[in-house]
Write a protein that binds this DNA or RNA. Structure first.
Lengths: 214, 214
DNA sequence: GTCTATAACTAGATAGAC
DNA sequence: GTCTATCTAGTTATAGAC
């Protein structure tokens, strides 16, 4: 394992275990077991190391979970995968990492684009799953799938951060989403008549709502 | 305005505008226009000031938005309020603040409970609204309202953080939630026969799902 | 309550030996 | 590529004058 790789991996561990505030060239180098000056030799600055570690980590974790997401066939399964990702990735700290970087982006400008790119990797996966789940059902043209995928990804990160300060509350939040997922699943299995009725009602509601949402 | 109050207000401004990483006794004191040593005289430590500012800020913002939430009568209105909170509070940086503190909690242990308490204030408001919206409808006993309120609050914070690195994506996420809210609204206005059918199907789906969700 | 001064530390980053 | 040594600047926190 090269020094470069050691530093990238150590960065992810430090952020996940100790938070963005504890990140420094020294803490990372110590965690990696290398000299502090090598951070600057290999990456130029701590911010650049953070940015590269973020993209590197997100890519790796998305690939590790791609197979599981590919097997999702209904909403209950989607929430089940979310729970598993919550359990395994949280242990590895990879989602909280995105939260840390999302928060850190306001003070380290270089982090913004890298974090957005990292989250985008997750979003694309979620988008694929949602498109598959909704594509055939009656909800397909009632929801903007790419938008929903973004909402789901960002929301997941938020709940992951919440888990850091209130694990019991986060667990309960997840459980309620499981119920909601089942509800969506039922909606998605409606027959053609109910389907048409639902569509009419939603369109009516949309017309009654503030157009262009002000 | 007392020095104490000036410091509390300045803390919120610094976190909101520059992020948790830029927070220090000096930056806060400068923002407040007071001497740096007064942070320690009045609050003992920077962490304690952060914790108190968090609870203080959350309380204030929740109260400022309570009236708007009290008027919510359907899901479309709820999302509309969320959007308004998104717009006004984001400008003031009060929700991103919670995100910053959620992230900061992993390195500043004193911040965890304070942040959880701050988010809890929002959660209770959301819970009240959800209970009112769902209470009469068919979804009432199909969803755990307190759990859903936690999910909604945490998700909102996540999207708010996301907005910091990708405003266009965040806007799109919000728009898709608006569609979802209308869908929920329609579901909630079902007649008694459809209502019973829906309930049967969800119960059936719940039985087929992994019990205890492993 | 507010100020100055300062101690004790940690940060990012670089120069230069090897 | 890797190391030591070092500079500069910023950090928390306290002591003591006012």
């Amino acid at each position: 394992m090269s020094t470069r790789e050691k530093l990238l991996a150590a960065t992810l561990r430090v952020v996940a275990e100790q938070g963005i505030a504890k990140v420094s060239a020294r803490t990372i180098a110590t965690e990696a077991g290398v000299n502090q000056a090598l951070v600057f030799y290999h990456f130029g600055s701590v911010d650049d190391l953070l940015a590269q570690a973020c993209e590197h980590g997100a890519r790796e974790r998305v690939e590790a979970n791609r197979a599981a997401l590919a097997e999702v066939r209904d909403f209950a399964a989607l929430i089940a995968v979310a729970r598993r990702v919550h359990a395994t990735e949280q242990a590895a700290g990879n989602v909280a990492l995105l939260g840390q970087l999302l928060a850190g982006a306001s003070s380290h400008p270089a982090l913004g684009p890298a974090t957005a790119a990292g989250l985008e990797l997750w979003t694309r996966e979620v988008e694929g799953v949602l498109a598959r789940l909704l594509g055939a059902g009656p909800l397909a043209d009632l929801v903007d799938v790419p938008g929903l995928a973004r909402a789901v990804s960002a929301a997941f990160v938020g709940i992951e951060l919440y888990d850091g300060v209130d694990p019991v509350g986060a667990e309960r939040a997840f459980a309620s989403l499981e119920q909601l997922g089942q509800l969506m699943g039922v909606l998605d299995e409606l027959g053609p008549i109910e389907r048409a009725a639902l569509r009419r009602r939603v369109r009516g509601a949309a017309r009654r709502a503030v157009p262009g949402h002000s």
